[in-house]
Design a protein around this nucleic acid. Structure first.
Lengths: 237, 237
DNA sequence: AAGTGGTCTAGACCACTGT
DNA sequence: CAGTGGTCTAGACCACTTT
């Protein structure tokens, strides 16, 4: 995987993340202090500090000066300014990602995908997949995706048990541009059921069109439970 | 060496940012190396490193080991979540903006604003305003805002018939940083009524904290009708 | 060879928290 | 009071790039 050894602080991060992932350190639990890590892992305090600080920055840990470091209560948060692989995002929060394929098919292109993928008249079909992504066994995203067959002709035979559609598309089609729209909606019943939402519970919907090699590669509707998902961002003026 | 209010590395960041803002260091220009900053600003190399690394992380600088540090090229595409004045935004769509003040008061700080504005113990009160912004006579945003009195002591006497809270705050407090969170919610009844929403209609909620002069200036809850509002963005990879 | 950023150490002082 | 995280220093070694 990576011939070069990881930096020490990355090893410390991995150590902490693995303990969180295994459930050994549950949300709210106390994490060893910098001083303790210094002794346990034979690293300097600055190195322990860097590891814990970075994990705090990405929301995995919560630190209070004078008190200690704790596993953060998890609240799923995506970054509106980045496109991230949801599997990676969940992993970086110290949780297990799992996905289920609900639909994987080739269909006649309907108006919505047709328009957003800017299909030509002779393109009659598109690939269509619906997956549910789970974070710690709770549904976090329903991914309703339409794929341009010109870009990914082998889409139907991708082993989605082992990789996400996002990962596959990144492999076969260099990402050029992304456009997205964020809305609050009450999803239709089928989507709500997959997200295990109650009646009239709101959902954060991200509509995303990706471009590759000058063409529209994929059009995805990403539904998230309003109660468990938020987009975070920030910037300096 | 450090009796200043801001940490040293923040001062170094401010130093670099001010030179970039003034145009002295244009995009692509070389920024002093860590070693040079060490001499120029009388800080240790680790401190200079932290400042430059953090500025790289947020996209202001670009660093290449063995080469140097440079001012990053501006991104061609805008951020999906820009801070915009809602009055301007509505105006740019060719519609009439109008707003109504529902609440304008000084209240005892409760836990939410207290935490998000990082108020000190001696700060007991905050300013609180609720406005409804209309686009072509339809409510587009309910702005529920808490303001740090240290930053805007005259907030209660601002003529909000003529300017938005956003405009006023931009005048009295230079905007330094913004953090926001986007969620899909069903708003409480009072908010829903102001937005003229039906029961269980979803709303896109933007929570926004603004920073000025190193302090948290304002904390706003911006509710939008899910059926009539969306956030759009895009960028090139 | 000289300069750069990336990392790491072993100390240090501080403000704050809990007991 | 002892423990915590936040910050800071003055060194150090490394891999890398440019001259």
């Amino acid at each position: 995987m990576n011939a070069a050894p990881q930096p020490l602080y990355e090893q410390v991060k991995a150590y902490v993340l693995s303990r969180i992932r295994s459930g050994e350190w549950a949300p709210g639990a106390r994490v060893p202090s910098e001083h303790e890590l210094t002794r346990e892992l034979q690293v300097s305090r600055m190195t322990a500090n860097r590891a814990l600080s970075e994990l705090m920055r990405v929301g995995v840990l919560s630190r209070v000066a004078g008190v200690g470091t704790f596993v953060a209560d998890f609240k799923a948060a995506g970054h509106p300014l980045q496109i991230r692989n949801i599997a990676e995002e969940i992993g970086s929060r110290g949780h297990v990602h799992r996905s289920e394929v609900v639909v994987l098919e080739r269909i006649e292109a309907t108006a919505g995908p047709r328009e957003r993928l800017a299909l030509r008249r002779e393109d009659r079909h598109v690939f269509h997949s619906v997956l549910v992504h789970y974070e710690a066994d709770k549904p976090l995203q329903v991914e309703d995706r339409y794929v341009n067959p010109r870009i990914a002709p082998d889409y139907l035979s991708v082993p989605f048990a082992r990789m996400t559609p996002y990962e596959y598309l990144m492999e076969v089609a260099p990402l050029q541009r992304v456009e997205h729209t964020v809305r609050a909606v009450v999803p239709e019943r089928a989507i709500a059921a997959l997200l295990e939402l109650g009646r009239d519970e709101p959902s954060l919907l991200i509509e995303r069109v990706t471009f590759s090699r000058g063409e529209r590669a994929s059009y995805a509707l990403l539904y998230h439970p309003g109660s468990r998902f938020e987009l975070k961002g920030g910037f300096d003026a």
